[in-house]
């Protein structure tokens, strides 16, 4: 429910098939698919250069661009009611919040007067194993405590 629901529409939308206002021709969607494919090629070839910043931009920046295109043109969220936007954005924001509040504990392995011994041991063991061979076969380490 939202402020938008204030007005009683009362139309019988339930049986209908969504937006009758503007039907795009199939070629419109094929063009968008073409753009998406080009972006896919860029996102795969970009990281091959081996430059970190370009990897980040091409891999993750383009993922957001692709997502935006799919949302806008395939899911037609641009012509949807704002309430849908609010609901989707809210859930995404909550996930960002979750990441922001949890990452100090899980992502970092030490901080003010605390240290995650088990995670540090795991990192050290993995890096040492990785120097020898890429497998990183896991061997159970002795029980370590999290302070």
């Amino acid at each position: 429910m939202s402020a938008e629901a204030t007005h009683d529409h009362g139309h019988d939308h339930g049986a209908g098939g969504g937006h009758h206002e503007h039907i795009h021709p199939p070629s419109h969607y094929v063009k968008i698919w073409g753009v998406l494919c080009v972006l896919l090629v860029v996102s795969v070839t970009g990281p091959m250069l081996g430059i970190k910043i370009i990897t980040l931009i091409t891999a993750f920046g383009i993922a957001f661009v692709k997502a935006g295109i799919v949302i806008k043109y395939f899911m037609h969220l641009d012509t949807e009611k704002p309430i849908i936007w609010y609901a989707l954005i809210t859930s995404v924001v909550f996930m960002v919040l979750f990441f922001a509040a949890v990452s100090p504990d899980v992502m970092k392995h030490e901080g003010t007067r605390w240290e995650n011994v088990a995670a540090k041991a795991e990192v050290a063991r993995g890096l040492a194993a990785g120097a020898e061979h890429g497998g990183g076969e896991h061997e159970p380490a002795p029980a370590a405590e999290v302070h």
């Binding site: 429910m1 939202s2 009362g10 139309h11 939308h13 339930g14 009611k81 849908i84």
Partner: peptide
Amino acid sequence: ANTRSATGIPTAKL
């Protein structure tokens, strides 16, 4: 209840 649409969005789509 399924045929109404107080928000203007079809119920199933909502």
